Computed example of a mutant assay.
Amino acid sequence: MPSSSEVTLAALRKAISGLDPDVPGRGADLFQFGVPALDAALGGGLACGALHEIYARAAQDEAAASGFGLALALRAAHGRSILWARQDLVDVEAGGLYGDGLAAFGADPKRLLVVRARDPTGVLRAAAEAARCAALGAALVEIWSEPKALDLKASRRLALAAGVSGVTVVMIRLGASPAPSAATSRWSVSASASTPLEANAPGRPAFDAALLRHRAGLGPRTWRVEWDRDRASFEFAPLSRAVVSVPAHGPAAADAGAPWRRAG
């Protein structure tokens, strides 16, 4: 009798095998943030068909890291489907995905395939399947802490699979510190104060994104950007006032319109 993990993987293979690979956007070497100066600093953008890592700078920045990762995946996917593999512990520690919030962020829930696994090994298996499926636009991977299963060899396997298929893999690291990997770029992300909209309405999601490493040899640097859901693009956000830290799990976090909410 097959194990539950084998049944889950079989279902995942069946789901992604039904996707249409012949969608415009395949074959691009780079995907862009949508901010000309930022993209120019990155040599035109970030590599498609590669592994990119995003670390939450602190515990209160977990939602920001996930939001930044989702935004990168949306940029890389060019309208194609995205597979999101999450460890169950991420839901417990950082909050579960929320459909209305995802839609408000600009992510069409119909284009998201969400896979949940109990342990890091299960998440990595799902990520490997996604990285090999050329019909996907991107794969998001969320793993909690620093499991032994996610070593340099595991990251190399993901990077190699992504390079063959052209699927961009964005790995979101929560509760972890930067470590050696095969990632093409590595980022540290924290939440930032957004610019209020008309009538003092809540502003767009804002991030302080620090580039820690880039295989092209680019030096560390930091940008402050906001996410425009209508254009599905980033843009620079000038800092007009002091940044105030936001409670990680308090009412302010809930009011910010994050596409995930704390469960339990």
Rank of each mutant, 00 (worst) to 15 (best):
E6S: 13
V7Y: 10
S17F: 11
G18T: 06
D22A: 08
V23S: 04
G27D: 11
L30K: 06
A37K: 12
D39K: 00
A50W: 12
E53M: 01
R57W: 10
E62S: 13
F68P: 06
L70A: 15
A77V: 15
R80Q: 09
L83S: 08
A85Y: 05
R86V: 14
G95P: 02
L97Q: 07
Y98T: 03
Y98L: 14
Y98N: 06
G101D: 11
R111E: 14
R111W: 01
V115W: 13
V115R: 01
A117Y: 03
R118M: 10
E129K: 00
R132M: 10
C133G: 06
L136V: 13
K148T: 13
D151I: 00
K153F: 15
R156S: 11
A161W: 03
S165C: 13
G166S: 08
T168V: 06
I172A: 09
P178G: 02
S192V: 04
S192Y: 05
A206N: 09
A209N: 05
R213Q: 15
R213H: 07
H214S: 03
L218K: 01
D228P: 02
D228M: 02
D228Y: 06
E235V: 02
L239A: 14
V244A: 14
V246L: 08
P247G: 00
A248L: 10
P251N: 03
A252Q: 13
A254T: 11
A258Y: 09
P259I: 08
W260Y: 09
